[in-house]
Design a protein around this nucleic acid. Structure first.
Length: 817
RNA sequence: GCCGGGGUGGCGGAACGGUAGACGCGGCGGCCUCAAAAGCCGCUGUCCGAAAGGGCGUGCGGGUUCGAAUCCCGCCCCCGGCACCA
């Protein structure tokens, strides 16, 4: 390895340039530079959670792809800001700390140090002077500030909501700790408990979050995932009068949301969720015991188990009735857990004839099934062996009989509206964002509870509300946050009336930390504001954000929501944070996701040790299309390793003199390819083009002319930045290539070949090729094609019907024999 | 079930409707070397053939076209996400 014949020693080259970058501040901005940058380009990557295991290949893949983009933009003259940070709060760290018996306040700093060391070795163009750590009070003071902004705007609400509760461990569980309805630690069935929690009213922004998607330059898949998550559906709210014990109208209504108001004539019963507030008043005395038993069972099941689709439907009759305002008939009200409290109104009108779930339930409990839609081959009396959900016309529907279902949603709703029991309505499946965590490792929610004043905001001047060091931070059987055990911390006075009061002891969701971090980066030089107006104007919104699909929904949605809110409150002049978002693919090993249990985890440190970061980066980018990912193979890295060595040899050994015309053409073709493909994340094909070009340069063992290889150095720089610096220096330049070099231009005139190989087909089958001058007239090409020996054999004795000529590419003789 | 994304050599993957398999790995043979590393040269989809050449080949079945991996219709399989959403 240390052989003196081999001039390229990656470890030495990389150490040298990493030191130089740090000494010269190549990758960092001063506050002054951030303020005056002329062509600002904000290149964002998803900041990592600093695990104890260290950086994994997936991190490096994600960051390198973003870094290649950053370096490409920089070589194209932009002032590229590529900050980095640590998303270090949250349940992962807390659980790991619990397992190891270390305090997170000790664990996280050592993890961060290790990550920092590893990240620096990968050669990313990170601005370490503007790093953030979400667990730093100087950061989370402003996370708490964001909370207060929403609170004061009336967008933070406290309401009761179910949490997962393990009756054996006696503790609240996060959703990810519930595996198939059981506690991940002890296997006990998880229950639901209702406690008061803080919610952000993201549902009020549902329509805007949906509408804006249209104009964002984001991957289609990500936009669709967001749209599905928001889940807009159009329909109607219908109000069914509740009957009292005597069968008379009680004055109350049971309201339902339906996307099929046109099938209201087929609603033969109603179903309410077990948690529905009207269950008590609707249930008759005789049924009360049974209903109570069912409700108790339903709440004992956790949400995961309850929502299993394939289980048979369960439910009980309440003994109460509604009256179907369309048919005038009395219909029973049931309680069943297939109706969810948190979608729509928590109650449905059941139309078993035309809804699969209702059909199943009606069959189970022998409830009437009525056909109200007839398909093309049906009439009003055709039996229904299963729910019919296809197109057709209404039947058994009074004066709507014969109406096409396509037109009837609106018609029926308008009719219901005239009669006062229906309204057009849009419903979303997006839920309000629960940000309360009954946990220790997060920023305390900056609220004080006062008996007289209620929940009161901590004054901004008192921020941060510092998370105290608590040695026993394990969740316990109290069902409240560990902070609720620290009396000297939670006892305080009301900021409004001065009375004795108690701090909120829940901490906030990690997604709140990461929901605004991109606003903080350019302003880390300011400790008296979350984000500075001048910096924000210059740098935001983010120009390109590259990250994993696993955050395509939640993280990006929350970040968009917070940005919209801060915009509406006058703190930002844009409402979408990420102009362009691209999701990278997944890197697999032996065809499957890397995981400890599979034992196929690739550990990056030894690879960088052996081959260097440049080779590792180049290999990762070469594996497959960046947006699709690829499969990691241990031996594949040899390709890029050899390529970079050969490049080093050719550049450092280049001679003065004129370039070979064929090689020069190849160089220009390569410049064109890289220029067009790199900004679109076509990294694998760009690297392939560079390899092909170098193969042409070195063909037959020839020595390169300087002019042939010089342009290749900036082209390879995004992938192999250290080597590029070394070669740039070897070519006699001073300073960093990322400051001194320009992305090379290609010359259209130098791209064209003077002769081309034209494929010759007979009846679509390739029978030969002929070399002709580029742009030759059709008859010349056809003549040459006809003369080709093998082609002539196929044409002899056949009748030519037609000749197709594609200029400079192909001739096809269509013949009959 | 629904929504995405895919199925191309031994492997990772290339291919504006126009010579399928670029580039790389692996394999085989050779050069250099005391040896190794690095490097270099040649071959490498498959079947028939000594060669020239030919047959077959992009998950399966149809279709459009002079020509289909690519476009259309109907299936099958894999991966990711959501999942009783009324």
């Amino acid at each position: 390895m240390d052989n003196e014949n081999d001039g390229y020693v990656p470890s030495q080259v990389e150490a040298k340039w990493q030191r130089a970058w740090e000494d010269r501040g190549t990758n960092t901005f001063t506050r002054e530079q951030l303020t005056t940058a002329e062509r600002p380009y904000y290149n964002l990557l998803m900041f990592p959670y600093p695990s104890a295991e260290g950086l994994h290949v997936g991190n490096i893949y994600a960051f390198t792809g973003a870094d290649v983009h950053a370096r490409f933009k920089r070589l194209n003259g932009f002032d590229v800001f590529e900050p980095i940070g640590f998303d270090a709060f949250g349940i992962h760290s807390e659980n790991f700390a619990l397992k190891m018996g270390v305090h997170p306040m000790d664990l996280i700093p050592s993890n961060v140090r290790n990550f920092t060391r590893q990240l620096k070795r990968t050669g990313g163009m990170f601005d370490w002077d503007h790093a953030v750590d979400t667990t730093d009070p100087a950061y989370y003071a402003w996370t708490q500030w964001v909370f207060l902004k929403l609170f004061k705007a009336g967008l933070a609400e406290r309401k009761e909501a179910p949490v997962n509760w393990c009756p054996s461990c006696m503790t609240v569980l996060a959703n990810e700790q519930v595996i198939a309805g059981e506690c991940e630690r002890c296997g006990t069935a998880v229950e639901q408990r209702r406690i008061a929690q803080w919610f952000f009213a993201i549902t009020r922004y549902a329509q805007r979050l949906l509408d804006n998607l249209e104009h964002l330059d984001w991957s289609d898949t990500t936009r669709k995932a967001q749209a599905n998550w928001i889940g807009r559906s159009e329909g109607a709210e219908l109000r069914f009068p509740v009957l009292d014990a005597t069968g008379a109208d009680s004055g109350a209504t049971l309201d339902v949301f339906t996307t099929r108001p046109d099938t209201v004539f087929g609603a033969t019963y109603m179903v309410v969720a077990p948690e529905h507030p009207l269950v008590d008043s609707i249930t008759s005395g005789a049924q009360r015991a049974e209903v109570e038993k069912y409700r108790a069972e339903a709440t004992r099941k956790d949400l995961v188990a309850r929502q299993k689709v394939d289980k048979t439907k369960t439910g009980v009759f309440t003994g109460g009735y509604c009256h179907n305002p369309a048919t005038g008939q009395r219909i029973p009200v049931w309680v069943a857990d297939y109706v969810l409290m948190d979608y729509g109104t928590g109650a449905i009108m059941a139309v078993p004839g035309h809804d699969g779930r209702d059909f199943e339930f009606a069959t189970e409990f022998e409830l009437p099934i009525v056909r109200v839609v007839a398909g093309p081959d049906d009439d009003a009396d055709t039996p229904l062996p299963e729910a019919y959900v296809g197109p057709g016309t209404l039947v058994n529907s009074g004066h709507f009989d014969g109406t096409d279902v396509a037109d009837s949603v609106r018609a029926v709703t308008e009719w219901a509206e005239e009669q006062g029991w229906g309204t057009m309505r849009v419903n979303y499946r997006l839920h309000d964002w629960c940000i309360s965590r009954q946990r220790y490792w997060g920023p305390p929610i900056p609220i004080v509870h006062c008996d007289a004043c209620g929940p009161v905001a901590v004054p901004e001047s008192d921020l941060p509300v510092v998370l105290p060091r608590v040695e026993d931070f394990k969740p316990d059987d109290s069902g409240v946050s560990p902070l609720a055990r620290v009396e000297e911390w939670y006892r305080t006075t009301c900021p409004e009336c001065g009375a004795e009061a108690r701090r909120e002891t829940d901490v906030s969701d990690t997604f709140l930390d990461s929901g605004w971090y991109f606003l903080r980066y350019p302003s880390t030089d300011f400790d008296d504001r979350a984000f500075d107006q001048v910096m924000t104007k210059r740098w935001l919104p983010v120009d390109t954000y590259i990250g994993g699909n696993e955050h395509a929904v939640l993280h990006l949605m929350y970040a968009r929501f917070l940005t919209m809110v801060l915009h509406d409150l006058g703190h930002l002049d844009f409402e979408e944070p990420f102009t362009r978002f691209r999701a990278h693919g997944l890197i697999t090993k032996d065809g499957s996701k890397m995981s400890k249990s599979r034992g196929n985890v690739v550990v990056p440190d030894p690879i960088i040790e052996e081959y260097g970061a440049d080779t590792f980066r180049t290999y990762l980018m070469f594996l497959g299309p960046y947006e699709e990912g690829g499969d990691y193979s241990d031996s594949g890295i040899q390709g890029p390793f050899g390529f970079l060595h050969r490049l080093y040899d050719s550049v450092t050994g280049a001679q003065d003199g004129p370039p070979d015309p064929d090689v020069e053409r190849k160089v220009h073709q390569t410049i064109k390819q890289c220029t067009e493909q790199i900004p679109n994340l076509g990294y694998n094909t760009s690297i392939a083009a560079l390899m092909e070009c170098l193969n042409a340069v070195r063909a037959g063992g020839r020595t390169a002319a300087r002019a042939e290889v010089e342009p290749l150095v900036p082209l390879v720089a995004p992938f192999a930045p250290h080597l590029a610096e070394e070669l740039w220096e070897a070519l006699g330049h001073e300073g960093s290539i990322f400051d001194g070099a320009h992305w090379p231009d290609f010359d259209e005139a130098k791209l064209v070949e003077d002769s081309v190989q034209v494929a010759v087909q007979v009846n679509g089958k390739l029978r030969g090729t002929v070399g002709v001058p580029k742009g030759a007239e059709d008859d010349v090409v056809v003549g040459a094609a006809r003369a080709e020996e093998n082609v002539a054999r196929y044409l002899a004795g056949a009748t030519e019907r037609k000749v197709i000529v594609v200029k400079d590419r192909l001739v096809n003789f269509v013949v009959a024999s």
